[in-house]
């Protein structure tokens, strides 16, 4: 009897969360999937089972190769931001976490500094985005400084509403997602391992590469999943910082929802989900998170 109870205990404990996931995640997802095969007019959606929405999503995509169709071009652009932001946040996140864990001695200082990295979250996304304009705009602080120092004679336009601006803001927002899991992994590293590496004559770089990086792999993988999924689905930063001139999968979906074209928006959402899942799957193939947690 007692054994029976304890065998079921973990399931009961997991049940509330599972229920929440079921109602607010799995169910809506299933509905989205079903609706993606429906047909629509300007004012109604009709149950059906047609692949039209997917055909429209990939309209002329294969016929027009090697020219890229809208969907491919959108995803290529999003993937490019994804890769770039991932690389930069990884280097930044790793460096900052390393500094916090191995260079800071005092625990209090470490906590204070770690909290400082969350500053970008103190303001809303929109405020954060709008505040870039006086900094990077044509008449912004950076341009005034550059012109004042005589480095340029005309304001530099590519600072704002450009791929540069999008990358900058995405890095700004997402670095903390990388810092926290890596920090967590690094804190668990047994210091004696590093001493051992040092004692056996490893250079600091060798220690980082052969000891710390492998032992931080879980944190890196979790951080990467955070960053990649957020960037793939982002359309607010891309929209605001790119001056809405840069396409993103999320924006395409939003435009279609606004035009009441729910089924095709659903189809695009499913495509986006599939792409993100593939990326996550590849990352999980590289690092077995569960084994190393």
């Amino acid at each position: 009897m007692l054994e029976d109870k304890s065998r079921w205990t973990p399931y009961w404990q997991a049940a509330p969360l599972a229920l929440v996931f079921f109602v607010f995640f799995l169910l809506p997802l299933a509905v989205t999937f079903v609706v993606s095969f429906w047909t629509y007019t300007g004012y109604s959606i009709e149950p059906a089972f047609v692949g039209d929405n997917y055909v429209t999503a990939f309209d002329k995509c294969f016929a027009s190769l090697p020219d890229l169709c809208t969907t491919f071009r959108t995803y290529l652009s999003t993937l490019r931001f994804c890769l770039l932001v991932w690389l930069i946040t990884l280097v930044l996140g790793f460096t900052i976490a390393y500094y916090l864990v191995f260079e800071i001695r005092s625990n209090t200082v470490r906590i204070v500094l770690a909290l400082l990295t969350t500053i970008p979250f103190w303001t809303s996304n929109v405020i954060r985005m709008i505040s870039w304009i006086p900094l990077l705009g044509r008449n912004g602080l950076v341009n005034q400084a550059l012109m004042g120092a005589g480095i340029v004679s005309e304001p530099v336009d590519w600072l704002l509403y450009s791929p540069f601006a999008v990358t900058l803001s995405l890095v700004h927002i997402n670095t903390v997602f990388m810092i926290v899991p890596i920090l967590n992994s690094m804190l668990r590293i047994d210091r004696s391992l590093i001493e051992a590496a040092y004692d056996t004559g490893a250079s600091p770089w060798q220690t980082i590469w052969n000891v710390i990086v492998p032992l931080s792999k879980t944190g890196i993988a979790i951080g990467s999943i955070f960053v990649v999924t957020v960037v793939m689905g982002d359309f607010i930063s891309v929209g605001l910082m790119g001056g809405q001139q840069i396409a993103s999968a999320g924006k395409v979906i939003e435009t279609q929802i606004t035009a009441l074209q729910f089924p095709i928006a659903a189809a695009n959402a499913i495509v986006l989900l599939a792409v993100v899942l593939m990326i996550v799957w590849v990352m999980l193939r590289l690092v077995d998170i569960r084994k190393e947690l």
Binding site: R73, T74, Q245, A247, K251, V252, T255, A259
Partner: peptide
């Protein structure tokens, strides 16, 4: 029109 507009944004 919405489809073409998205094409314009992605161009």
């Amino acid at each position: 029109m919405v489809q073409k507009w998205n094409e314009f944004i992605a161009a």
